[in-house]
Amino acid sequence: MKKKKVFVDLFYLNTALTGIKTYMLEFCEAAKTFPTEDVVYIFSHNHQKQADSTFFRGDVARWKKLFYHLYYFAWKQLILPFKVKKSGADVLLCFDFIAPAFPLNTKKLVVVHDAFFWQMPQNYNRIWRGYFIPMIHAGLKGNTTVITTSHSAKNALEKNAGLHQKIEVIYQCPKLLPESGEDRVLDKLGLHPKSYFLHVGSFDKRKRIPTLVTAFAEIEKQYPGKFSLVLVGEKGLSSALDDYRQVVQKIKEKALEHKVVLPGFLPDREVKALYQTAFAYVFPSSNEGFGIPVIEAMRSGIPVIISDQDALLEIAGEAALIHEMDNPLDLAAQMKELIEKPKLIDALILKGQQRARGFSREGFIGGFLKLI
């Protein structure tokens, strides 16, 4: 049988953060770990070099941002179609919502991670959104299957995005963090094992980190000096999305400057150490397509508290405590529940480890192979 050639577009790895970056890197690792005789992958870039590039990432000059938007458009609509045709690929796989609008004699698999652009237009620049959404729809024309990350995300897309293509759900594999962590990070941040609540991720508005800070203020009142709050991650992708200043202001308002730690971005081994030694992981987000840190925390053997957002409920199953979204008092009550009930912690850790086994690299790549 003739091998299927799959062209994998990795261009966006040079700016991708958090979830999409993890998604792309884990696919590359899964393809390498579980090869098949029926499929050959053609990668547009070396995934590690592209992910490590910092030229366009972070707090860059305005001209770089503008240049990147032009470069991205040229890649998707001119360079990528040329490379796909030249390679003779049977399938084009795009992880970042956008595929070429240029007609191709190639099946397209396009990952649309969530419906945020349609559900929360106020969080995005109007001009940018006005060209990005038409690009999404243009790239989905032709022989295309949409892939998304959860049944919750699929329902949101069907309801809000006006997509007419078939939508398939493939559960991703969260990042496989190193087996052992770099414990010196605790000394660096002035932390002690099992004495802090943890959140890992960007400061996007939808993450509702001010709600977490407000809830933690209640814990500090009831258990003064016993716990810290560690917020690992970078600022939001844009000023319109970013909540970092509001978080800092909330910390000052609640007089928690010496109790809330903001270490910024950390390497994987340090993140692993923080997961392993945290008292609990807290995820108060108002909108997720999947919720990668939920599984990362469960794999690390700590209890998890989530909001009652649909995707988080789906991914966590029955292995997490749940608080009412945007309700800091209810979140504080769930945090207190863990503090007061050690047996509950043990039960949640066991359930979490069992739940996490369902999200593997083999299952992730297997979902794609079925479609290919």
Score class of each variant (00 low, 15 high):
3 K>Y: 08
6 V>H: 06
9 D>C: 00
11 F>D: 03
13 L>P: 03
19 G>A: 07
20 I>E: 01
20 I>M: 11
22 T>W: 15
26 E>H: 09
37 E>R: 09
38 D>I: 11
42 I>K: 12
43 F>T: 09
57 R>W: 14
58 G>D: 13
59 D>A: 13
59 D>G: 10
61 A>Y: 00
64 K>I: 07
64 K>W: 02
70 L>S: 15
77 Q>N: 08
80 L>T: 01
81 P>H: 06
82 F>C: 13
82 F>Q: 04
83 K>G: 09
91 V>C: 11
94 C>I: 15
95 F>P: 09
95 F>K: 12
98 I>K: 09
103 P>V: 00
103 P>Q: 01
106 T>Y: 11
109 L>W: 04
113 H>P: 02
113 H>Y: 13
115 A>D: 14
115 A>L: 15
117 F>C: 15
117 F>M: 15
122 Q>F: 13
125 N>L: 04
125 N>D: 14
129 R>Q: 12
130 G>Q: 07
130 G>T: 04
138 A>Q: 04
138 A>G: 05
139 G>I: 07
141 K>H: 10
145 T>H: 10
145 T>L: 10
145 T>R: 13
147 I>H: 03
147 I>E: 02
148 T>S: 04
148 T>H: 02
150 S>Y: 00
152 S>M: 07
155 N>E: 12
156 A>K: 07
164 H>P: 02
165 Q>K: 13
170 I>A: 03
177 L>M: 02
179 E>D: 06
179 E>S: 10
193 P>T: 03
195 S>A: 09
197 F>G: 09
198 L>V: 01
203 F>V: 06
204 D>R: 14
204 D>S: 06
208 R>I: 02
212 L>Q: 08
214 T>E: 03
215 A>V: 08
217 A>K: 03
217 A>V: 01
220 E>M: 04
221 K>N: 10
225 G>A: 01
226 K>D: 05
226 K>Y: 05
227 F>D: 02
228 S>L: 13
234 E>W: 12
235 K>Y: 02
239 S>W: 04
241 L>I: 08
255 A>Y: 12
255 A>P: 03
258 H>L: 02
258 H>F: 14
262 L>W: 15
264 G>K: 10
268 D>M: 05
272 K>Q: 15
273 A>L: 07
273 A>H: 04
287 N>Y: 12
287 N>P: 00
290 F>K: 05
291 G>D: 02
292 I>D: 09
292 I>E: 11
293 P>K: 12
293 P>L: 05
294 V>C: 12
298 M>L: 14
302 I>L: 12
308 D>W: 05
311 A>V: 04
312 L>C: 01
318 E>Q: 14
324 E>D: 08
324 E>F: 05
326 D>T: 11
329 L>V: 08
329 L>C: 13
333 A>H: 05
335 M>D: 13
341 K>A: 11
343 K>L: 12
347 A>N: 12
350 L>R: 14
351 K>N: 10
351 K>E: 11
352 G>P: 01
352 G>L: 05
352 G>W: 01
352 G>K: 00
355 R>C: 06
358 G>L: 07
364 F>Q: 14
364 F>S: 08
366 G>V: 09
368 F>H: 03
370 K>E: 13
370 K>T: 06
